[in-house]
Amino acid sequence: MNGDNRAVSDIKKDLRIHMSSMRNTLSERERQMWSYESCNHTSVYLSNMGIRCFLTYIPFRSELSTVSLIEWGWQQQLQVLAPRCQPEDYSMTLHTIQNWGDLVPGAYGIPEPDLARSVRSAYHSVPEAIILPGLAYDREGGRLGYGSGYYDRLYERLRQVNGSRPSPLLIGLGFEMQVLSKVPMDGHDVALDVLITEKGIVNCKEEAIIDGNDTFQ
């Protein structure tokens, strides 16, 4: 991307196509193995941080699978939240899920909480951590999403609701092959606090300060 004078939106569009294609080339064995390793790192991190309530995406197509992380959360009796997308305004509602039967096909074909079975969180309820999907990441907290801004809007709403209290931890979860030297970011894009892949955990805030040295733990 060095020397690319195109608009950031155009660069992102092309990069989404490229990264989606790359992720689709992973074998099922690679996806399963690396998903499990990434989720294991995530569960250790959440435990160390004392997290009792977290929001996570439900995996779709070639995304890193969060299945083992969700089941770990249930086993630990944590509050596991999943989002429902509202395409009319690109917002999300958050719902507690307690088993796989709480999910039904939703917007875009992605599994979402069933309104008849899951418990919707109150508007002012804020999870301690949000685990985000993405197409590309960098170690300074950059994330390339799918272009609709659902999680950016959600984070801004939760940040305002929380007031002076700490904002939710933003955790990007992806495969190491999705990590780039730099992800193009707009002014409204929210930076991650933590990036987790099958290789380990990166504290993105520290990484930004030290300008790119490896901080895998």
Rank of each mutant, 00 (worst) to 15 (best):
I51Y: 08
D102H: 14
V161G: 03
N203G: 02
S21I: 06
R31D: 09
Y123N: 10
V104H: 05
L103Q: 07
E63F: 08
Y155F: 15
S35I: 08
L173H: 04
G3M: 07
Q32R: 15
R157T: 14
G134E: 04
V126T: 13
K12G: 02
N162S: 15
K199N: 11
D152N: 09
M19P: 02
L170A: 01
D10R: 08
G187H: 12
I110L: 11
E71L: 00
S43Y: 09
D89W: 01
M185G: 03
Q75T: 12
S125F: 01
G109F: 01
T197C: 07
V179C: 02
V104D: 03
I51S: 08
R61S: 10
V202N: 12
V161A: 14
D193V: 01
Q75H: 13
E112T: 00
H124N: 13
N213M: 13
S181N: 12
T66F: 04
Y57K: 06
D193I: 01
Q98T: 12
V183P: 09
S43I: 09
I110W: 11
I110H: 11
W72S: 04
R84H: 07
Q79M: 13
N40Q: 15
T25P: 03
L170R: 13
Q76C: 10
L180G: 00
P105W: 12
R157V: 06
D102M: 04
D4W: 11
G200C: 06
Y90C: 14
I131F: 07
T25V: 03
L192D: 02
A136G: 08
D114N: 15
